[in-house]
Structure formats: C-alpha cells, structure tokens
Amino acid sequence: MSAPLLKLDQVTIRFGGLTAVSALDFQVNDHDLVGLIGPNGAGKTTVFNLITGVYQPTEGTIAFAGQPTAKRKPHQLTKVGIARTFQNIRLFHSLNVFDNVRAAMQVHRTHGVRQALWRGKAYRAAEKEVEDRVMDLLEIFKLGRLRNEDAKNLPYGDQRRLEIVRALATQPKLLLLDEPAAGMNPTEKAELAGLIRSIKDRFQIAVLLVEHDMQLVMNLCERITVLDYGVKIAEGTPTEIKRHPKVIEAYLGEEQIA
C-alpha cells in the first residue's frame, strides 16, 4: 500500500487561547468514503479549512498524495486535487448554472488572456471541449436543462447538487463535502446518499463527508471519525462507532437526553 491520499499528523490549531483542533491523526485512502462527525462546535469545519489551506495548522503536518500542504494556498491545493463544497452554499450568484461550473474549469484550462482575446481556432476548440465537459457533468446530475437559469434562483436541493458538480469540475482526487444534507428532507437525503455513492464509483475519487445527520453517515461511510471539542474520540466502522461508549456519551447520548 502506497502513501495515503490524505494524512493528518498530530494536527493542532489554536485561535488565541482556544484550541479548535488538538493533535488530530487522521487519514483518507484512495477511493475511501470517510465520515467526520461530531456534535456542534466539535471542529469539523475547521478540519476542512485546514485540509483546504484556508487555515494553517499551529502544529503538526498535513500531507496530500505524499506532499506536505503547508504554506500552500487554497487555489493551489485545488490544482493538486482537493475540491470542496461549503456548509452555507457559496455559489457564484451572478452567474448562471452553466457558468458556475465553467468558472471551476480553470485548473485544466489551456488558454489564457491572449487566446481569449484573439479567439483563434485552438481557443474555440478548447472552449467547445470545456462546454461539452460542463454539460456532461450537468447531465449526470440532471441539471442540464437548467443551464441558463441563474444559480441563485435554483431550489435549495439543486443548489447543493450544483455545488457538488462545481467541485467535481476541478477534477479532484479528494472531494470534501461539508454538511451536504443540511436543510434537506428525508427524501432528498436518501437521494443524496445515492448520489454520493455514485460519485465515488463513477469518478473514482475519495470522499470525506462532514455531516450532522447520523443516519446518513452510518449508511454511507465505510469508516467514521468522531470529533468532540477538537479531539478525536473514536474511529472505526459504523457498527463500531455505534457501540463506542465515548461516542454515545458525547454525541448520541446527548441526543437521547434531548
């Protein structure tokens, strides 16, 4: 087995006096579907921001595909294959559905300012290819017929899916989904679960899922890591997690009392 796709080694981040994530060891292998769960404020989104380069760890190292990610900017990490969605949807609101995805094709674009101005044959061919790829992606997620719709006018569920399409357009090796089921009803959640599974199979990528919805994570993920107050309290298969006393205490127990 070669190096894991993503490896967090003793990662700690402090904001002033607050330790948001503390000595976290964690890894994702190729084609994994891994869940990261924990109660509110456990530091899940902070972990996402650490992986994507929004924050730099105070201590510890993060490596992606064997390369340390320290000092690399988010857009550089996207280029090497980390894509993400956001907890609060962050689509490009003044662009339509098609252009939202097209804007995310920067990583693999072959033209720059000069070609865009001159618009020669090679440029037009490249743009045609981009268009085909965007439409392919949109069709897979049944968003093709909405291509000229403004992203901000889409129904909530479609916006979430569009964000996933946009992230996939960067051709990632690892897709980070930040609470993709937030605000969805049970039917939509079931659809989403199927969707995530099919993404993993079709695009042959690893998926790291941060989610509140226990059932979704339990059904979907092969491995789950549980965070509480920035500390990893458990790791294992869904069955193991369900029985883990610390998890029940921190997470499930809390729900039972409530």
Binding site: T52, V54, K73, P74, H75, T78, K79, A83, R84, F86, R90, L91, F92, H93, S94, L95, D99, R102, A103, A104, M105, Q106, V107, R109, H111, G112, V113, Q115, A116, Y123, A126, E127, V130, R166, A167, A169, T170
Partner: peptide, 24 residues
C-alpha cells in the same frame, strides 16, 4: 471566456473562487 469567468467568480465569492482553483 472560461478564463474570464474567473473575474466574475472572484467578484461573487473570493473564498469559493479560490476553492475552485482560481487565484483571486
């Protein structure tokens, strides 16, 4: 152009843009 959509992406949301590989 596909290149130029990056300008508007930066205008709309810099954080999302950089997560899409755009250097704001």
């Amino acid at each position: 152009s596909t290149y130029g959509r990056g300008f508007i992406a930066v205008h709309d949301d810099e954080i999302a843009a950089s997560a899409m590989g755009i250097n704001p």
